[in-house]
Amino acid sequence: MDGNLTYQGIGLDAATALALLEWQAEMGAEEPILDNTVDRFELAARPKPVMPEISLSQVKAPAALSATPDDPSALVAEAEALAASADSLAALASVQEDFDGIELKKGARNFCFSDGNPKARVLILGEAPGDQEDREGRPFVGRAGQLLNRMFGAIGLARDAVDAEKALYIVNVLTWRPPGNRDPSPDEIAVSLPFVRRHIELASPDLIVLMGNIPCQAALGRRGILRLRGQWTEAFGRPALPMTHPAYLLRNPAAKREAWADLLSIAARLETASA
């Protein structure tokens, strides 16, 4: 035994075989359980809980009652009504997790609502859960999340800090993982946006970090993070700074210099606001 493997007549060393397995996991093929694949999107819809009878005066959005996956505008209206009904983060998490208007829910393992201190002055808005986030039910816990921790730790901020002055609160545009880590579709962003908006209203941070292209698309209606980064703007009624995603920095280490400049800008903004 020399530690080498053979696949379809091609010799593979152990390192190459492991790299192929990791690539398959990133593409979404991480559950080799059945002989035949299962299309989770074709599974029967989960039964909805039985709701108590209510009077017409209690219905906030009658049009949302007829929402179907083929009617995106009605789904958005339903999401808006549910988000508006939440008077706390716990209530928002409950109604968003129960919302069946996004197909990604059928194929994801876990609902990824948030992580960190909801009283933090800084809210980081990310894109969507990846494989590790889907497994743990928390945003930014993979390699990119570890880099994010080190980045903000360098300016004295941490997601596990009890003191709101030194804390981070982390939210994603999407709370369910897209298959294969693909970019969210415009419809998926649109139906998630009412929940994101209400989430930010309830957390009420001093500033927002738009971490990557998808948050910029959701909050600003624009993409092109390499052009947008480092320029303060406004999103959801609060100061916001676009930054390159830590996953990009892992692929392009030279860009860390610009990310450091953005971090210093955030630290200066916080200090000025506290003065």
Rank of each mutant, 00 (worst) to 15 (best):
223 R>W: 01
253 P>G: 05
152 F>P: 09
26 E>K: 07
216 C>S: 11
93 A>P: 11
72 P>M: 01
125 L>C: 11
105 K>A: 09
204 S>M: 08
100 D>E: 14
197 R>C: 04
218 A>H: 02
67 A>D: 06
45 A>E: 15
184 P>E: 02
151 M>R: 10
23 W>M: 11
189 I>W: 01
48 K>T: 10
64 A>L: 04
269 R>T: 06
159 R>G: 06
55 S>F: 05
25 A>G: 13
162 V>H: 10
106 K>G: 01
148 L>D: 00
170 I>C: 11
78 E>Q: 09
194 P>R: 00
56 L>Q: 14
54 I>E: 13
220 L>R: 07
267 A>R: 13
211 M>P: 04
226 L>I: 05
203 A>E: 13
193 L>C: 02
35 D>T: 07
224 G>C: 09
241 L>C: 12
51 M>V: 09
246 P>L: 00
29 A>I: 03
201 E>C: 13
89 L>G: 07
251 R>P: 02
275 A>N: 12
170 I>H: 03
96 Q>H: 12
203 A>V: 07
27 M>D: 12
32 P>E: 05
42 E>I: 05
130 G>E: 04
97 E>T: 09
82 L>F: 02
154 A>H: 15
72 P>S: 03
6 T>W: 07
181 N>C: 11
208 I>R: 01
269 R>Y: 12
139 P>H: 00
85 S>N: 12
233 T>I: 03
172 N>G: 10
123 L>N: 01
260 W>R: 15
175 T>H: 08
171 V>G: 07
19 A>Q: 15
181 N>W: 00
263 L>F: 12
70 D>W: 00
224 G>W: 08
159 R>N: 08
208 I>S: 04
176 W>D: 00
215 P>T: 05
222 R>Q: 15
216 C>P: 05
156 G>N: 14
222 R>K: 15
189 I>M: 04
150 R>Y: 09
71 D>L: 11
221 G>L: 05
100 D>L: 06
275 A>Q: 11
168 L>V: 12
13 D>S: 08
223 R>S: 13
237 G>M: 04
270 L>K: 04
79 A>Y: 03
110 N>A: 14
268 A>D: 15
118 P>F: 04
74 A>K: 14
6 T>I: 10
44 A>H: 11
4 N>S: 13
100 D>Q: 14
152 F>I: 03
14 A>P: 15
239 P>T: 03
178 P>I: 00
24 Q>T: 11
114 S>L: 01
220 L>G: 12
150 R>A: 15
161 A>W: 07
5 L>S: 15
262 D>K: 03
76 V>H: 06
4 N>W: 06
185 S>N: 10
249 L>M: 14
193 L>F: 14
212 G>R: 00
77 A>E: 08
39 D>R: 12
24 Q>I: 02
201 E>M: 08
176 W>V: 00
250 L>V: 05
66 S>I: 00
155 I>F: 04
19 A>K: 15
67 A>T: 03
106 K>Y: 08
237 G>L: 03
136 E>F: 10
210 L>E: 01
27 M>V: 04
39 D>S: 14
221 G>K: 10
33 I>M: 11
113 F>K: 02
265 S>G: 12
126 G>E: 00
122 V>G: 06
122 V>P: 06
120 A>Q: 06
99 F>S: 01
192 S>N: 14
64 A>V: 04
11 G>W: 06
177 R>N: 05
215 P>R: 02
15 A>M: 10
257 R>Q: 13
138 R>V: 10
19 A>R: 14
